[in-house]
């Protein structure tokens, strides 16, 4: 039963990851008064890229060819280890918060190496920026995760989501509100969304994530885009599961509720996509050289959230 749920959760995230990107794009198009592309377009893009030829720069080394595998592998690991449709199914030692943080960091590191191996100035610029952001987001990220662990009394994401799901909404989410806002700031930075990065830009000077993958093509590009979609999905669903911890499965509930849980999962994806699209349509991108302000706000927010939770914890 438990393994069924683990597998189901994994497959669901992997299968629906491109849909998240499609939903966000659709919502953004809606905000711009456009009809926009089909929400299934990312699937077609990935499939057609998988069948295309690859062109690789002669100035790259074996690292360039290894990067897509490691980046996708870390994303697939995240999909397995972060609770999305069920809780109480993963061993705590596997879903440990710091392990998940480190796996995400490993993915960023290899993406950066891929950008550095192109010998193109754009790739190098994107890498330098991405690495800076990844380094500066760590304090807020780890503190937010530990604060949630402190609140739940458990140090695995699976357990944290389980705690949120089992407690009354008004007892946990308001206490953790500031922490969750800081988590949202971290998620936006980790996934290269506004106000940190513009995922739709075609101007190299404003790119972060896109600049690193400019030199990838064909199947490798598909793998990197898929990995980015998985990471966005996983983190968005995690956020939604903490803010709205409803409709989650547990091994004790039996298999009958699986369709309901799947519908709730898709609903959460849609809400999360709407949230990201709303953020991206209502605020402007920050100048890169003001990023330390954003990161400081995230870290201070995480600290304030921690103190709130601590007060709640000791009372």
């Amino acid at each position: 039963m438990m393994y069924v749920l683990i597998f189901l959760q994994w497959i669901c995230v992997l299968a629906l990851a491109p849909l998240t990107v499609g939903i966000v794009r659709k919502m953004k198009a809606h905000y711009q008064n456009r009809e926009g592309a089909s929400i299934l377009l990312p699937y077609w893009t990935i499939l057609s890229l998988m069948r295309k030829e690859m062109t690789i720069t002669r100035h790259s080394s074996w690292v360039f060819r290894v990067v897509p595998f490691v980046v996708l592998a870390t994303a697939v690991c995240l999909a397995l280890l972060v609770p999305s449709i069920a809780y109480g199914i993963l061993p705590h030692a596997a879903s440990n918060i710091f392990l998940i943080g480190a796996i995400a960091a490993l993915g960023s590191v290899f993406l950066v190496l891929g950008g550095m191996d192109t010998s193109s100035t754009f790739g190098h610029m994107g890498s330098s920026r991405e690495m800076t952001l990844a380094a500066l987001v760590e304090p807020a990220f780890y503190l937010v995760l530990s604060t949630l662990g402190l609140l739940a009394g458990v140090w695995s994401l699976d357990g944290i989501v389980g705690y949120f799901a089992m407690s009354p909404w008004s007892a946990v989410v308001p206490v953790a509100s500031i922490t969750l806002l800081a988590l949202l700031a971290v998620i936006l930075a980790e996934n290269a969304r506004y106000p940190v990065d513009n995922p739709a830009t075609h101007l190299e000077l404003t790119m972060v994530h896109e600049a690193m993958i400019l030199e990838y093509s064909g199947p490798y590009l598909a793998m990197l885009e898929y990995a980015a979609a998985i990471k966005l999905t996983v983190m968005l669903v995690l956020f939604m599961n903490l803010v709205l911890p409803f409709g989650l499965l547990h091994p004790a509930f039996g298999l009958a509720l699986i369709p309901v849980a799947l519908m709730v999962f898709v609903a959460k994806l849609t809400l999360g996509g709407l949230l990201v699209a709303t953020i991206e349509s209502t605020i402007v991108k920050m100048r890169f050289y003001r990023m330390q302000e954003y990161m400081s706000v995230a870290a201070i927010g995480a600290l304030i959230g921690f103190i709130l939770v601590l007060i709640g914890h000791t009372l």
């Binding site: 590191v109 190496l113 550095m116 990844a134 380094a135 760590e138 990220f141």
Partner: peptide, 29 residues
């Protein structure tokens, strides 16, 4: 919590440092 913030910042900078070291010596041209 304060120690963790500093520690995470140190950890982040260490990642930056060693990515830089490897990338600048071995990657590109």
């Amino acid at each position: 919590a304060l120690i963790m913030v500093v520690l995470a910042l140190i950890g982040g900078l260490a990642i930056f440092t060693f990515v830089k070291l490897f990338a600048l010596v071995f990657l590109g041209r």
